[in-house]
Design a binder for these strands. Sequence first.
DNA 1: ACAAAAGTGTTATAACTACACCCATGA
DNA 2: TCATGGGTGTAGTTATAACACTTTTGT
Lengths: 240, 240
Amino acid sequence: MNKKAIDSVSIKEMDSEDVVDTVTIDCTIFGFNEGTLEVLLVQHAEGISKGKWGLPGGWIRKEESIDDAAYRLLRELTGIDNIYLEQLKAFGSPKRFPLSRVITIGYYALIKKEDYRLTPGFTASAVKWYKVKDVPELIYDHADILEVSLKRLKRRVRQAPVGFNLLPEKFTLLQLMHLYEEILEVEMDKPNFRRKFLRMKLLVPLNEKETDVSHRAAQLYKFDPGIYEKLTEKGFNFEF
Amino acid sequence: MNKKAIDSVSIKEMDSEDVVDTVTIDCTIFGFNEGTLEVLLVQHAEGISKGKWGLPGGWIRKEESIDDAAYRLLRELTGIDNIYLEQLKAFGSPKRFPLSRVITIGYYALIKKEDYRLTPGFTASAVKWYKVKDVPELIYDHADILEVSLKRLKRRVRQAPVGFNLLPEKFTLLQLMHLYEEILEVEMDKPNFRRKFLRMKLLVPLNEKETDVSHRAAQLYKFDPGIYEKLTEKGFNFEF
DNA sequence: ACAAAAGTGTTATAACTACACCCATGA
DNA sequence: TCATGGGTGTAGTTATAACACTTTTGT
């Protein structure tokens, strides 16, 4: 069951469960580590794509919604429950999956790597974080899905402060700026970034500073979910 | 065949064609008429939802991609080939379709009503433009799909000049402004709107003015697709 | 005292907002 | 000549961008 959850391709296992047999889910799971954007890939242990890397995915159960299926698959894979997850779009070239006509629904998720742990059941198949700029060849149309996910992330990050979901609870302004720089692939001006972000009152300064750094300790902030709600409702944008 | 194309619900007809039997497509087709945003609905002629209105939709053929299926259905319904069409998202509550587990992929389209004509084959089933603020009760989860389409249109219109696809070839600045006002449900300042839009050099002034109006004739513009490309690539936004 | 990053200040430019006002045209 | 929308001007305010500068901390 665990293997199936991370492997949308072993079609022979399919009929053993009560699943929709023409539609799968594939997730692009982003993480952020030391200034680099990463993505979680799985190595398929058997089936026609044995040994190759792909996005984690799986089948949809007949009695669950597609969103529920995505949350379930993610929980099974990362052990995380409270996750930022959004549907990307459906991918449906007739030949995308060689054995039969399978449409897949792409999702993308942002996780705090500090929260992530591999659940024991999954250690059988290889699961690994790859730098986004350094992913190996992927099965089927997963390279497409990843590309669309990246585009969407870039767009999303400028329209809502979703980046927080990639950072630890407490973070510094520079960490936040580096996150934006990495995702948007631009360089930013530190003073201007500070002011712009502080102006929108989205950050709550904590009574805490960095420790163990060999330079002036930075103020730590957390993110104010209340203000976030207000801002997303009336719509805003983070152009930099 | 025609009836099937606009009716994703008559499941009994389904197996007579080479289609994917668990996934449909439903389209929200927007038009703009005399300052009002409209949506194209179809009345189902038979099946379990006989007499009720819904979004036009249909089955995906086994050998076509989902995008191709959406274009085909739209062409069959409106007779238009060169259309603005974008995938919305997949809808997949387990109970959304009462007879079996069917996931639908929503699309939304923007059409110039001047180009639109009902193709003869479709006159059998009723097809009708409804004002968006005045749609009747819809079958299944089509109200959901319409709502998400509207939200998406609002968002999209602020990030790319897609509104042009709803207007005739030649239009005045005030028509354009009214389009934005209608979609975004806000009131705008005429002078400021002019300047803002003209500043981005997206409009090409024509050597033509309005005729037959009982006031000063307005300059007509068309839309410059070259600039559009450049703008969308580097990303921009139309906050008003 | 130096490196490295934190954080503040300043100034020119550009965009936004709100409004007053003049122009052209048909009824 | 009046109503209707077309179209321009302006002034106060706010956001942006570029960059010089001071502060704090560990080595």
